[in-house]
Design a protein around this nucleic acid. Structure first.
Lengths: 170, 170
DNA sequence: TTTTGAATTGTTATATTATAACATAACACA
DNA sequence: TGTGTTATGTTATAATATAACAATTCAAAA
């Protein structure tokens, strides 16, 4: 079966159900494969994150989680722990400059190690796109090498205007 | 007069007084030049930031500021406002992934517009180095262009081990 | 099947980071 | 010397995140 190809900055009217479906299916498959437990809570939080392509704050997610599902009001540790686990599996990423979280369209990208991503974030509509450009990563590694610095983790977050918002602004 | 050339990841025993002196002199010169007010508070905070090459948290700075100088205990807005101004002038940068602030060695780098920096941050000793590599910036712009995305601001923060700490680990 | 140890989730409290709103003081220039 | 602007002080609170311990659920051994 042909895989749905996630593309950055899709039109607003794209079939978003497809994005969600694919993300959940990928997570489910990966967990089954590796004996990880995608519990109802974890699944639900992943679903909430995927309700849009905009990074979501932990407390926003918590609020949406609360009042639904199981009875009690959820407390912050619930959401932070769940996000931590989702990040560890590579299902979501944290956007440092926004204190927010977004779903990863390619959780299985580079095997077990976290992949080097670049995030392009529209300041107008809030949408973020994850890219994996070898050129950027290579330029960074080149610099690191010349410094004698060994890279463990890259944070690359670019703010600006997405194509739709640029168009809308004209 | 030959300008002191700030270099990334200098040995621990470098003449750090020189770094501080240069940073303060540059700030002073820039302010004089542009009619900006480098008040005692602003000057002092810049000095505190430059006490090391490690990014500092706002509350750490506040605590150090407090108990010295003018009588009263300082409150958070004092430090945040001051940092905001220092950032606006390009005298300090914020490290998003650490919620911390570091002095800029080249505040006048690119005229008025903020320059595109890359930060290399040692997870062992906390030291951070600011670089300005056209290769990295170019790779990012290349990607942006292919997306139709217009870049307003770049956050590039690389975590890993600095040369000294790698050496020490052997 | 029952036990048992580990993983997950719940709960309470608190730490850390940051800003809003308004009062006072200092300064710059008419 | 006044007068508007910029800077700083102060109080309160918002927003983000974690520590510590209790209760529950789960899976696999006994």
């Amino acid at each position: 079966m042909a895989k749905h190809q996630p593309r950055p900055f899709q039109p607003q009217d794209h079939n978003h159900g497809r994005c969600v479906q694919d993300a959940l299916a990928a997570a489910q498959a990966l967990c089954a494969d590796q004996g990880l437990r995608l519990t109802p809570l974890r699944r639900r939080v992943l679903e909430l994150i995927w309700e849009s392509h905009k990074p979501q704050g932990a407390y926003d997610l918590l609020e949406r989680l609360d009042g639904e599902e199981t009875p009690g009001a959820k407390a912050p540790p619930t959401i932070y722990r769940t996000l931590e686990w989702l990040q560890a599996q590579g299902f979501v990423h944290r956007i440092e400059s926004l204190n927010a979280f977004i779903g990863c369209p390619v959780p299985d990208h580079g095997g077990a190690e976290p992949h080097a991503s670049q995030f392009f974030i529209c300041e107008a509509c809030g949408t973020a796109a994850e890219l994996h450009d070898d050129g950027v990563a290579a330029a960074i590694h080149r610099q690191a090498k010349s410094l004698g610095f060994s890279v463990a983790d890259q944070t690359v977050e670019i703010k600006g205007r997405c194509p739709s918002c640029r168009e809308a602004a004209r």
